[in-house]
């Protein structure tokens, strides 16, 4: 039981709530293979019609950005306010813009 290598691998579960929406991460399940992971995800995360489509992928396959790099990655966008429409002053009389 304490032999960790005998544990079924972990899969991340993504669920499409309804047609037109993207898949969204909802949690994870253990399963021996991908097919079983879909079945477990179905039983665990969609008991009340929470979705219409599931994706599963091995948790080990995810590469995540490092929280320590968050400043370097995301803050450079902070001084580029001209990327937002509110940066531009348009006189009151002008419409449909």
């Amino acid at each position: 039981m304490s032999d960790a290598s005998k544990e079924w691998p972990l899969w991340e579960v993504f669920l499409r709530g309804k047609g037109g929406l993207s898949h969204r991460h909802v949690g994870s399940v253990h399963a021996a293979d991908a097919k079983m992971a879909v079945e477990h995800a179905r039983d665990t995360y969609t008991r009340r019609m929470e979705g219409v489509s599931l994706w599963v992928l091995p948790s080990a396959a995810i590469t995540a950005s490092d929280p320590g790099d968050a400043a370097a990655l995301f803050e450079p966008a902070e001084d580029k306010v001209y990327r937002h429409p509110t940066f531009y002053k348009i006189p009151d009389g002008i419409t449909h813009i």
Partner: peptide, 8 residues
């Protein structure tokens, strides 16, 4: 922490 550790 692993699932097996918690189960154990």
């Amino acid at each position: 922490t692993s699932r097996d550790e918690m189960t154990e």
